[in-house]
Design a protein around this nucleic acid. Sequence first.
DNA 1: CGCCGATATGCAGGCGAGTCAATGCTGCTG
DNA 2: CAGCAGCATTGACTCGCCTGCATATCGGCG
Lengths: 125, 125
Amino acid sequence: MEYVGTALAEMTMPQISPLAGEPIERADAERLAGVLKALADPARLRLLSLIQSAPEGEACVCDLTAPLGLSQPTVSHHLRILTEAGLLEREKRGVWAYYRLVPTAIATIADLLTPPRKRAGKKAR
Amino acid sequence: MEYVGTALAEMTMPQISPLAGEPIERADAERLAGVLKALADPARLRLLSLIQSAPEGEACVCDLTAPLGLSQPTVSHHLRILTEAGLLEREKRGVWAYYRLVPTAIATIADLLTPPRKRAGKKAR
DNA sequence: CGCCGATATGCAGGCGAGTCAATGCTGCTG
DNA sequence: CAGCAGCATTGACTCGCCTGCATATCGGCG
């Protein structure tokens, strides 16, 4: 399979109703739930954390299996889910596959959750 | 079973390592994943949205089954999960059970996800 | 005090998710 | 070019979760 299009990208542009104001639609709820589901796993949260705190902000699979205590296929599986959710990006250099965080992806999710009340400090969205 | 103690409450006080900086511990990852798992469901997202946008910011089960298109036991089940996750609070008045959002619960989750970089605008927590 | 309405709980079926072992694929390296 | 190392994919197993039906519980009303 080749990459079905980063659920986050679909929701970051067309403003998905954040968890505030009007009741959200079914489709919006399902898309937001989809991205949250990608986050809602201990192994994947640790993967994001590990990658982000890695030397260059990037890491390859072989660096991640040990700290997680999971098999290489399993780690690869989780990385795939995070990538398809739009949270990670993959770059293959030689034999290694380097993963890094998509810059504003997680912040976008946080913004979708946070009610608009009192958010004067930030750029007006 | 009677209410095992609002996973969010356990993580909001003792500063759970947010998804930034140091690699997060297994226990932290599991607790954060637990709360996110409560959020990562279309029906529950819609419940939160419906309750929040209800007249007094509160709603009883009988008002929620119809818009969701789910049976009453199922709605009750989801409300229970959200309550145990620390996202909702329940108040029983007469025959009805009114649910409302725990004020800063969702914002707390958003803060745990957002990296600390460039968060000058907000109060220094 | 007995019935009815609003919720909560138990139980069961079905589907999706996490994990690993085995295997295939690709690009280095000797 | 033959062998090896790093990753991805497949298949199978298990477990947890969403949902509905049936039932128990609790409060109000006639």
